[in-house]
Amino acid sequence: MDKPVSIYEPFHAGLPPMREYMRSLWARRTFISEFSRSELRNQNYGSVLGQLWLVLNPLLLSGVYFLLIYVIGGSSDAERFGHLTASLFLFYLIANSLTGGVKAITSGQRLILNTSFPRIMLPISATVIALFKFIPTLIVFGAIHVVLGLPYTWQLLWAFPVLFIALVLALGLSILISSINVYFRDIASMLPYMTRSLLYLSPVLYEASSLSERMLLFENANPIFFILDSWARVVVQGEAPTGAALIQSSIWAFSIFFIGTYFFLSRERDFAVRL
């Protein structure tokens, strides 16, 4: 007799067989890139400037926020503008991952009800889309870096580990919020206010060093505070991030990633009957 091609059995301890799951996920990596590309194409479909919006959006955004801090704070030096753009672009990598992730499962209903595949592909795709949107902003920031005459040092290489931690955090948040939204749809409506609050609580419109000791203590509870501060320190000031900030952001990023992934995988079985 032939060996079965597929065997379906009850999950143990609420989790799918992990080796098989990972193998299946890897086999479908083309889906993630194809989905992300199609989604990006569609977001600017029909607009005159098309994909140019991927560069224009971050530029306009930083312009608007610069206007805001200029009007409110009166500060307009070059380093301030560099700090604003660098932090804002990284903040939007995380925020876009959250916004894309929140409906990743609920809007994938047709696919989930018809096809057997690792559901985690959908929130991963949301983070990949956010990354695709982030890459043009890096190029824009590269140009700003040159124009503003910001320092070039070997410390700039710290940008890679910092970005890696930010990506783990973005992915963890996307996975976590996509599964929460299956059970509590209100989270999708609350999200714009949550990301807006996160923006104001993070060192984007101001520098971390300008906060009082008391506020800094409070910021320990902000998962993105230290990663944004490290990023600005590296790419704007050309300095190495502090060890404490790196450790704290890593703890936040990996905790959210592992908790989110565990929650997602243990609930994934439910999704097809909840949608």
Binding site: K3, I7, Y8
Partner: peptide, 12 residues
């Protein structure tokens, strides 16, 4: 698409 709660399905 939905894993079973009991039993087993084999597909050849």
């Amino acid at each position: 698409i939905i894993p079973p709660t009991q039993g087993r399905v084999e597909v050849y």
